[in-house]
Design a protein around this nucleic acid. Structure first.
Length: 547
RNA sequence: GCCCUCAUCGUCUAGCGGUCUAGGACGUGGCCCUUUCAAGGCCAAAACACGGGUUCGAGUCCCGUUGAGGGCACCA
């Protein structure tokens, strides 16, 4: 006897003793009165019996995007929180849209975020195979069972006829626009013969025509739909592959899934799944429909199409894009957990373990949520600043290499502290440190060498004095440079900023740059003096009479 | 068109009938710090969609309206 507990048990029994804290999934909206917050022993994992089995079941039709990743994350969090099992199942039943690049991308993306699966591709498990394309015999078997029990029927209508051939069916009697059930009344034996003779057919579910189907959603409460408006969905396609509806039900049952957590967009078809479970004589798992992730504008769900920010930057939508844009997986993990879920009224920054410990279905907000890139950037900046110099340097290295800079780790290790507080994304490193690696500074406006309330001659005087001083500073490090330069400003009777601006522009080629003394130290005396000489030349050209 | 779902600052959210003159975060504006830019600190503006009920009392419960989102494939 397996340790699996049926959802009937979950739904009809009062929460058992091990379920007394508020964080357990057993508390649903309908049982709110019994819910109490308990913050004691937060760090300790409850020792639950291993009953929870959840799955993430993507279709390998393209690169994994954030919406999918969020669904995976919530399932993973629920599994890890409750000491359950997280299963990865590949729903590759659509041969037309199959993309061979999708699976590697999926596995890589999940691993990047740290979502490890207990059963699934590359790790196996006792309920495999975990690719639906390798389980087709099962679906055919259950489709036949449904045929035999009279809960399904063969349909010979062409997809063309269903798609456009029946305009009048769309309006009357409040019926959905779907299939008109033409083949539902065909004689079953006759239909079977036609199939035996090689005629192409699909198998459809015979939905009840009367009554309502009601199911309990863990996040939204009871949802109820008229049976009459649900059309008879295709269970098995003419190519012998199952549709999502059949495959999903069969596999969730066979794989002993206890909780289905899937995106909002499945609500509409859930009643069919309920009927399918009923027809098959199976107990349906508990179910929760996750709020969809909306486009940053809040209009429409996050699509896979490229998004462009106001500043022209292409916003990432695929998980791999986030990685390439320099988002830290731990930052995205934290941020994504907060789309549709919260812990309390003020805690947002949490470690992975804290989120696992605190996650609960009853704190999932049913409303759809827009994806706020600005906030993600902020989170990412916080996580970047939380890294040690060594860690950050190692993560920065690939981006520096990608930018084409010939940097060694030792040099980057010295640059990192200068830019750590100035980055929200790792890909911004290129624009921050380019002048360290450029042989020749990019052209800049020489007028920038001239501080406010000064002219070219004055700038020239300041820069020349600084050059002379820097040539002799020993050692050429942050503290000595600072002491020397501040002393010079005093002697010259100018404000520090007046003196530093020309130097900054001379050595960095721009007005905005990392802190000056550290920059000079890392850059080295030779390079700094060379650039100051060039700047002096630029100034002379600007005001030939000033010299 | 039909069905389903949802509805608190621009955005993510807290809120489980009185503790809400509605709290936090991002973003925005201002000030402080300061060699530029950041980071950090402080302050500010900013929301209960609307209309009816229920109740001594409603952001919180009910109904309706409106709005938004999702679905209506031999895709998942």
């Amino acid at each position: 006897m397996s340790a699996w507990v049926t959802s009937a048990w979950i739904r009809t029994q009062p929460p058992p003793s091990w379920c007394s804290t508020a964080r357990c999934h057993c508390a649903t909206r309908g049982q709110r009165s019994s819910r109490r917050r308990s913050r004691t022993g937060e760090g300790k994992r409850m020792s639950l019996p291993n009953t929870v089995r959840v799955r993430f079941a993507p279709s390998p039709t393209g690169m994994l995007h954030v919406g999918g990743l969020r669904s995976a994350l919530f399932n993973w969090l629920f599994a890890r929180h409750s000491g359950g099992t997280f299963i990865l199942r590949i729903e590759d039943t659509d041969r037309k849209r199959y993309d061979p690049r999708a699976l590697p991308d999926l596995l890589e993306s999940l691993r990047w975020l740290g979502l490890d699966w207990d059963e699934g591709p590359e790790v196996g498990g006792e309920y495999g195979p975990y690719f639906q394309s390798q389980r087709t015999h099962l679906y055919g078997q259950y489709a036949r069972q449904l045929l035999d029990s009279g809960d399904a029927y063969y349909c010979f209508c062409t997809s063309a006829r269903q798609a456009g051939g029946n305009p009048e069916q769309t309006s009357h009697r409040g019926a959905a626009t779907g299939y008109d059930r033409r083949c539902r009344t065909l004689d079953a034996r006759a239909a079977a013969e036609r199939v035996a003779e090689g005629e192409s057919a699909v198998i459809r579910l015979k939905m009840p025509l009367e009554g309502r189907t009601t199911f309990h959603d863990l996040i939204r409460g009871d949802i109820s739909v008229d049976n009459g408006i649900q059309d008879d969905v295709v269970l098995l396609k003419s190519d012998g592959y199952p549709t999502y509806h059949l495959a999903n039900v069969v596999d969730d049952h066979l794989m002993r899934i206890t909780h289905i957590m899937r995106a909002d967009e499945w609500i509409a078809t859930a009643p069919r799944h309920v009927q399918l479970y009923k027809a098959l004589g199976w107990q349906m798992p508990a179910i929760a429909h996750l709020p969809v992730v909306l486009d940053p504008s809040g209009k429409g769900k996050m699509s896979k199409r490229k998004k462009v920010a106001a500043d022209g930057r292409v916003l990432p939508v695929h998980v791999r894009d986030f990685r390439e844009a320099g988002y830290l997986p731990e930052a995205l993990f934290n941020f994504l957990a907060l789309i549709g879920w919260h812990y309390d009224d003020h805690t947002e920054l949490m470690t992975r373990q804290e989120i696992v410990d605190r996650f609960s279905i009853e704190r999932i907000n049913p409303a759809a949520a827009a994806f706020n890139y600005a906030k993600l950037d902020n989170f990412n900046g916080v996580y970047i600043r939380g890294l040690t110099v060594e860690e950050l340097t190692d993560r920065l290295m690939p981006f520096v290499v990608r930018a084409g800079f010939h940097a060694d780790r030792q040099t980057l290790l010295r640059i990192t502290p200068l830019v750590r507080e100035r980055m929200e994304r790792l890909d911004q490193i290129a624009g921050l440190v380019d002048f360290f690696f450029a042989e020749q500074l990019a052209d800049y406006d020489p007028l920038e060498l001239i501080p406010k309330k000064a002219d070219a001659a004055e700038a020239c005087r300041l820069l020349a004095s600084a050059r002379e001083l820097l040539a002799g500073v020993e050692p050429f490090d942050h503290d000595s440079i600072e002491r020397a330069l501040r002393g010079l400003a005093e002697r010259l009777d100018v404000k520090a900023g007046q003196l530093f601006q020309p130097i900054r522009v001379a050595v960095c080629g721009r007005l905005v740059a990392p802190p000056l003394f550290g920059t000079l130290e890392v850059m080295g005396r030779e390079c700094a003096l060379k650039r100051i000489d060039q700047a002096l030349g630029n100034l002379a050209a600007l005001a030939p009479l000033a010299g």
